[in-house]
Design a protein around this nucleic acid. Structure first.
Lengths: 230, 230
DNA sequence: GAGTGGGCGTAAAGATTGTGTAAACGAAAA
DNA sequence: TTTTCGTTTACACAATCTTTACGCCCACTC
């Protein structure tokens, strides 16, 4: 998942190459769009708004350099060029037309992926504040920062407490069985030790419920498991 | 004048290569600084503040990947790697360590210049983002200049201290796991030596916290990692 | 309707691991 | 040589996890 669901446009007329490049990118977690001509590629680039473009220079309908220049007239997106042409002048021309990298066929998939990562890394928006905050009652759980607030005050949770809470949040509203909780928080081999759950649920309630004796969010489902009511 | 007087740092131990690369860059209008060892190079990078770095991986004194990681801990400047190693794994390692491009020796000067132009072009866009000073408590950390002030006084941090701090700053607020810190500061292969973290965290606290015994910013998340609270 | 047992909550004492601190060593740099 | 820095070793203390013990509630049974 190192490509983190990045949208990638692949313009390549050779169906075989297109196929394995697409697969490689998808395996790494990318979302791939394809085009087999320059004209089609330009339309896709405009409509899909990809985060990166992989462009074959040897297209049937248009000169690859032309495609680069066209895109550069309205977009800064990173462009990695694929080409069978090894001449230095071809590389220079593509790079000066606006490409960011140039890879000669045949190329290795690991290298392509590494260059894709390098381009995406550079292009990544610095801010990105994902804002993944989960709220219930007077609590806020920031999963990205691993921080928990209760009534505005920061609450310290131990590793197991936090993992337990995070698991319940992930299944918010649904009942999570004893077995599943033990598996996710303590790992395999602890399935029988369900008493731990009672101990740690008490601690969570103590820290997060307004009235720990009568929990409003961290609920018991007798004989089954626990549930987080949001 | 296509390089537009850009400041370029060249780290290369081979005097012959260094010579003709320098000349080529200067002919195109670049301002070139040189270093023939990794250690010297890091100092030059910090003091000259180049717009681009060309780095030979086969340095006599330090592992080239380590140099990349070090620079990446405090700077986003484009890095073009030169190397005699053609193996794909070497390319992937360098790119994933933070390099932006990888050129195999022997390379053509026109191609190098084109790749330099491509990197400079891309880096030129977000120019306004300067002024990267991070503040917490009575501390100011200038990531661009690699300078740290505590209560107005300049504080000297060692290489590892600085990298650790820079990593925490980059993830400001978030918990950074032991594993991730070890990976980013010491590199792969040190994952188990988490005791180093305790030693260096203590030293950072000693230098930056008002009350090192009760840290207010450099916080421990027991069993998980550390966090910089801004 | 008193007894019984499972499931649950509560409490507190070990046991274990993680963390902070100090100090010493050797290699490299000044 | 002296200084600086990264590494290694040692140990005390704190935080956390695990274990053990006990009481309550409720459904069910006799």
């Amino acid at each position: 998942m190192s490509l983190a669901a990045a949208r990638i446009l692949l313009i390549e007329d050779d169906a075989v190459i297109r196929g394995f490049v697409r697969e490689s990118l998808q395996t790494e977690g990318g979302e791939v769009f394809e085009a087999d001509t320059g004209a089609r590629g330009l339309i896709e680039a405009a409509t899909r708004q990809p985060a990166l473009l992989i462009l074959d220079l040897g297209l049937p309908d248009r000169d690859g350099l032309d495609v680069i220049r066209d895109i550069r007239s309205w977009s800064q997106l990173p462009i990695i060029v694929l080409s069978a042409r090894t001449q230095e002048t071809a590389k220079v021309a593509a790079l000066d037309a606006g490409a960011d990298d140039y890879l000669i066929k045949p190329f290795g998939v690991p290298e392509l992926l590494a260059r894709v990562r390098a381009q995406l890394r550079r292009a990544a928006v610095p801010a990105g504040a994902a804002e993944a905050v989960f709220r219930f009652g007077s609590n806020e759980v920031d999963l990205a920062q691993r921080r928990v607030l209760h009534a505005g005050e920061e609450v310290h949770l131990t590793q197991l407490e936090y993992r337990l809470l995070a698991t319940l949040i992930r299944e918010q509203g649904r009942v999570v069985t004893h077995r599943q909780l033990m598996q996710e928080v303590w790992g395999p081999g602890y399935a029988e030790r369900t008493h731990y759950l009672r101990i740690y649920m008490k601690q969570l309630r103590e820290k997060l419920e307004d009235n720990p004796a009568q929990p409003a969010f961290l609920l018991t489902e007798t004989g089954v498991g626990y549930r987080l009511q949001a």
